[in-house]
Design a protein around this nucleic acid. Structure first.
Lengths: 243, 243
DNA sequence: TTATCTTGTTGTCAGATGGACAATAAGCTA
DNA sequence: TAGCTTATTGTCCATCTGACAACAAGATAA
């Protein structure tokens, strides 16, 4: 099992003074989002120590002294899930004086988006105490992790409307309805199919795969992929993504 | 003179081990924005030590062990400028391994908006080596401060279009043209006066002061103030601010 | 073979919005 | 009182948005 290094879970309260080669008082917590059908989920770790029996936590760990912040978040993700190449962005730094017991620990939260291709890999790869949980039905969480997730959801809901990042949650090739379902799941709303389709297509961000869905019991939809090059060009000439 | 506590400026390279009662390796840097007529400015501190002769830095300092992050940013701002009640938000945490010489220092950047009422107070209150600099003509900066400011500007330009925060840069009572000039200065663009006016007024976020500008050599414009209550109500019912 | 079901895709239309710009109003200065 | 500057209102048209109808394409079942 990879060393998940959750502050306060795998360590006793005075673990800080034992940890070697890390920046003391500074940790990483990762918000890993994935889409399970039409349900937005987040990756959580079950706590095993008696103090937090039954509670869950964000996966995280310590930042090494000679390691960039982003690299640390990335390393911790890979150690936990075995998955690389995720969309990863810094969320916010949380440092309330009493957020962590007995020691002052400031944590830098990152959020990651896992593509549908890798969704089932992520939790399977690692220990049984790591699992996807619906963001609409979160279990009890340790420390300020509920607050961090709440903020993360707020930012995700905003970002997804203003940056083309939602594609990172889909498989490489997807249908327009899958894309629509993604927005409906994240924003917790419903959208008009024809209008959504037009809006997306007008942006010229999708390139057709010239393929159709397979094995569906109805007319198969066309598959598209996100065209990162096109987005780069468009945004350089003042285009603003907007849902 | 207030103790500005710039990491690496007022301290020798091994200052970290001398500093008492702070979280080691963790600092705050503040991006303080203000509007000088139609020019967006940022508050910088001139470096005095021989190593950084002539360079400038963001005002910052150390976080105390028993102090919340936001409180630290606030305290440092007040110590430097004597001004309170600024709009203050966390920007991002910067921690590249080699961003700071000889010691690993991670810094949490905050950005503040200073109202036009207080603009001239801010730099005047403190030492001569603190001054407003146009964001379009920045001097040479120490460490990664140029990168931090660049990111801050990007975030400010985005936020100002999606949240009603621009008002924090104006005096309490302002004209519609002042508001327009603010957006033009920050976004570095020009806007159509009648259309801008309509767009703003339709939002119902401004309440009229029933007063007019004084001492202008032309027809005086009506004064308005931002109605925070109205915004609260509107945003609760799904309203999204958008310029 | 044909009806029927489900989803994909295109069309239509009224109302809202946004950008360009004309027109008028109000106050100061010469 | 004319002329200047800015404030404020009005108009027009292209585009966008949301609601919903209509048609197309497969798959399944009678």
């Amino acid at each position: 099992m990879p060393n998940t290094h959750i502050p306060g879970s795998q360590h006793s309260p005075n673990a800080l003074s034992l940890a070697e080669n890390v920046i003391k008082a500074l940790s990483i917590d990762n918000l890993v989002f994935g889409l399970d059908d039409d349900d937005l989920k987040i990756l959580l770790v079950k706590q095993t120590d008696p103090l937090h029996q039954g509670k869950w936590a964000l996966p995280g760990g310590w930042i090494r002294y000679d390691e960039n912040l982003r690299d640390a978040a990335y390393r911790l993700l890979e150690e936990l899930t075995g998955v690389r190449d995720l969309y990863l962005e810094q969320l916010k730094t949380f440092g309330r004086v009493d957020r962590f017991p007995s020691e002052r620990v400031v944590t830098i939260a990152y959020y990651a988006l896992v593509s549908a291709d890798k969704f089932s890999l992520v939790a399977g790869q690692s220990a049984a105490d790591v699992s996807w949980q619906s963001v609409n039905k979160l279990p009890e969480l340790v420390y300020d992790h509920a607050e961090i997730i709440e903020h993360g959801l707020k930012v995700l809901r905003h970002q997804v409307c203003h940056q083309p990042i939602g594609f990172n949650l889909l498989p490489e090739k997807f249908t327009l309805l899958q894309l629509q379902a993604l927005y409906e799941a994240i924003l917790n709303t419903t959208l008009d199919k024809p209008n959504f389709r037009r809006k997306i297509m007008k942006m010229n961000l999708l390139s057709p795969c010239n393929e159709k869905q397979q094995g569906v019991p109805h007319r198969a939809a066309s598959l598209y992929r996100f065209d990162a090059e096109a987005y780069k060009h468009l945004s350089e000439s003042g285009f603003a993504f907007e849902i």
